[in-house]
């Protein structure tokens, strides 16, 4: 039997086979997220660029629970990381996530297809300012799985996310 991770990888391979990135809409606002590295070859050298509107148009996910950085239960909503990667035509094994403050963390690409990891755009329904650790915050569904409640996963929850480099 395939492991959950294996299943996710297989699903990713299947999804990435589709040229989903072709549907990338033109920019309407400031770029909040750049996905570069091993992405769809027909994209510009700067990689896949997303503004808030584009992210909102992708398949959304939701997290409601406790995190080490917030008090009480907090709701985070935003596009699924998998949806973002698919949209960018990402193809690889790991993701290098970079924050505005140059925080850098490397995440296995399979995470996106193993758990419903989201790139949160809203906290309790409101957009997040940079000072509120926004505008984008990677959130793992850490209340659904005890394996996600550890330091390594917390480190992958990069806030003030600005760029994902696929390799």
């Amino acid at each position: 039997m395939m492991s959950r991770r294996g299943l996710g990888t297989a699903a990713a391979a299947l999804l990435l086979a589709r040229p989903a990135h072709a549907a990338l809409a033109p920019l309407h606002g400031p770029v909040v997220l750049t996905v570069d590295g091993k992405v769809a070859p027909d994209l510009t050298a700067g990689g896949a660029l997303f503004d808030m509107q584009m992210l909102d148009a992708l398949r959304q996910g939701r997290f409601y629970g406790e995190t080490p950085w917030t008090r009480g239960k907090t709701e985070f909503t935003g596009p699924l990381l998998s949806a973002v990667l698919t949209a960018a035509g990402a193809k690889g094994k790991s993701l290098e996530m970079r924050a505005l403050n140059d925080y850098l963390v490397t995440v296995p690409l399979a995470d996106a297809f193993t758990w419903s990891v989201i790139i949160a755009t809203r906290r309790d329904g409101s957009a997040m300012r940079i000072r509120d650790k926004g505008p984008l915050w990677v959130v793992y569904p850490m209340d659904s799985d005890s394996r996600l409640r550890n330091e390594a996963i917390y480190a992958r929850c990069a806030w003030q996310l600005a760029r994902i480099t696929v390799s």
């Binding site: 950085w69 505005l100 300012r129 940079i130 000072r131 650790k133």
Partner: peptide, 17 residues
């Protein structure tokens, strides 16, 4: 302004955390 925002987020983190 971005740097200021980040700076604020850092001091807030220390205060709120």
């Amino acid at each position: 302004t971005t740097r200021l925002e980040i700076l604020i987020s850092r001091i807030d983190y220390l205060r709120e955390g």
